[in-house]
Simulated assay, not measured.
Amino acid sequence: MRIPSLRTPALACVFLLALAEPAAAVTLSGNAALTTDYLWRGTSQTQDDPAIQAGFKAAAANGLYGSVWGSNVEFAPETHASSEFDFIVGWSGNLADDWALDVNLTHYRYPGTTVDLNWSELNGTVTWKQNYWAQVGWSNDALATDRNGTYAQLGARAPLGERWRLEGAVGRYWLDDAYGDSYAHAQLGAVWAFKAPFELRVTAHATDDSAKRLFPDLAGSRVEAALQASF
């Protein structure tokens, strides 16, 4: 069964239904970032160029939420891809003391392209003590290939006082059905919360040789710096 392609009006309807709560019970939040490179699962989405990113989220008291996030991108010139919008509907909440769960459907949309790059993915993340997480994502249209793909990640953050923290993660993307290969990546970063709500993040990324074969010039070792804010 293929995950249906979500159109913006349909997603808006799902979003409104998911947030069918009294207005006072809905929490609005957002984020923004200016980064030297948009790296996603270890690979550059902007050909090593900077990116401007922003997102907004509305969450109901029952745990249901909807969000939209956007960034500029730069793929192969013939695709004419210049922007990405991620539309997300899901649920998050506590399972027990120290344990939390987030499950969602994410639709990646690239408007104005000459080929169909849009695709959707089911995601689930379990978090322990707010500092350790395990994530799994699955799609039967991974990277708009009409083939199966599964992604898994383990991550952790370590607070170092009130203003500093370290964040690290390792992930693997199984794309054998789509590309005949899979790849792994890792990242380690430091975050300085120098003045609320602003933070400065520097992250080192690395991938294995399989990623370099799958995505030439987009994978490998990179260092990314970003100024980010949450509000």
Rank of each mutant, 00 (worst) to 15 (best):
F87S: 05
T127P: 01
N118Q: 14
S83G: 11
G93V: 14
E84W: 00
G149T: 00
T150Q: 10
W91D: 04
R109Q: 14
G90E: 05
Y110Q: 02
P159F: 01
A152F: 11
G90K: 01
W119S: 04
I88A: 02
F87P: 00
V89C: 08
L105S: 04
T127D: 02
G155T: 01
Q135P: 03
G171C: 09
L166C: 12
G171K: 04
N104P: 03
L154P: 07
G155N: 05
V170F: 03
G137A: 13
A142I: 12
W164S: 09
P111A: 07
R109F: 14
F85V: 09
A158H: 11
R109I: 09
D97V: 09
V103Q: 00
G124T: 09
N140W: 01
V136W: 03
R157L: 11
N104V: 07
G137R: 00
L143Q: 11
Y110C: 03
F87W: 13
A158T: 10
L166W: 12
G161E: 06
V89L: 14
R165C: 08
V126G: 07
T113I: 04
T114K: 11
T127A: 07
T114A: 13
W164E: 11
D97M: 10
G168H: 06
N118K: 12
N104F: 00
T113Q: 10
W174C: 07
N94P: 13
G155C: 05
W91K: 07
